[in-house]
Amino acid sequence: MDRIPILKFGNALLVTIQVDMHDRLATALEEDLTSKIVEHGAKGVLIDISALEIVDSFIGRMLDNIAAVSRILDAETVVVGMRPAVAITLVELGLSLAGVKTALNVERGMALIQARLKTSDEDDDDAED
């Protein structure tokens, strides 16, 4: 069976979803990510969904679950790159993904994760601009 590749990026994991996912693929990703977080001791998970044309309640639930599980394992999940039409539809569907952090793109998402690591390590200057 196909699996969505998970890349290691420093202390974070990066997943780029590029296909119209059927439900089994989504479930497999959830499981794979959980074991990779533990395996690499990852502190952050970036899920890039900029290629996704729709997010229905099944994929929405998958994102929610990944965020919840990773939080327990001390990793922050950031969903990045959601398309405007997808965001509008998701809200209308009734899903706000309240437990999931979001960012406009991979770069911003990575900055969010790094900022969290810095603040948890020590007080450090965080110059963004």
């Binding site: 729709i54 229905d56 997808v86």
Partner: peptide, 16 residues
């Protein structure tokens, strides 16, 4: 685009 996304999402829910 938004209407497309909405109906496709609705179709996905109902098909499931």
């Amino acid at each position: 685009l938004v209407d497309q996304t909405k109906i496709i999402t609705a179709a996905s829910e109902l098909a499931r």
